[in-house]
Amino acid sequence: MKFLSIFALLLFVATPLAGFAAEDDKVHQGIFVENPGTDLWRDVRQRNFAMEGSSQVKSVDSNILINPQGDEWARFRVGVLVRFASITLVIITGLLLLHYVTGGRMKIEGGRSGRVLLRFSDFERVAHWTLAIIFLFLAITGLMLLFGRPVLIPLFGHELFSLLASASKEGHNLIGPIFLVSLVLVLVRFVTRNIYASGDLNWLLKGGGLFGRSHVSSGFFNLGEKAWYWILILAGLVISVSGVILVMPNFGQGREIMEMSHKVHSIAAIVLIAVSMGHIYLATAGTEGTLEGMKTGYVDLKWAETHHDQWAQECQDKNLTISSEEFARLQGKAVDKSSTVAKEQG
């Protein structure tokens, strides 16, 4: 650099300007001043935030010369995120499989009782399945976009995957905002039953009966279900808000906000997908008789006593249980009329 400056000085001496410069020492020194441009370019290039300038071109971030965050985000998207997502999903699948094959499926203790009680109303089940359908659609389309390039392009080729990705993206963007609506329905409907109650800590200390196959006392929802509820609500709200930011580029938010939103959105989504896999497993293959509650609204009394003994007791005290014949009648199934009439008379 020094050599260059001296060299440059020598060059300038040979120009007519040098004559002018020689008249004033100060001006002469001006040439020795280090190029102020270097500071400027250091600012532009090496700062951790984007330096703002101005431009005649008016569009999102058009006044920012270099956004160093972009490259960092790209590395997160194709490296950290894909690794984190695949490892998380593989681990959770492995754990659930392990739980199942080691005989983790929880049976109803002492078999079915023949009496059932109402667990979820029609509206609650509609809200649940609405959220479930939308969630599954979003999870599948989202994962396709995330894992498409490493997994699906080698399988389908660029053209076909591009078609699938386009469909996934458009579907994800359109259905996405509905997730927030159905999430709010579930939030409002189930919040009162998901507040911490005494005895929940005890449930936690005993590991929720997940290991060792012992059953722990609990109310309508146990702490595990409450935790799932709050993970769903919190992660769901985070996903929804960041998703709305991502899906509304028309409001002109810059790249840094988009990159942040994407990071938050994807991590929260992977967490929610992982936990929801646990929820789906426990509600279907993991325990006997749980899915009935979401299908018909009614669960067996023995199931309730096994998993939610306090709630079962409350219902029994209020005389809310009904016989399975009555249940079949409520479900509109053909029942032998004479026996029903006889019972009603009796």
Binding site: L163, K169, E170, N173, L174
Partner: peptide, 11 residues
């Protein structure tokens, strides 16, 4: 909804 991009003939 899946064909919203309006570019893929198959969709």
């Amino acid at each position: 909804c899946l064909a919203l991009l309006e570019t893929f003939n198959e969709l």
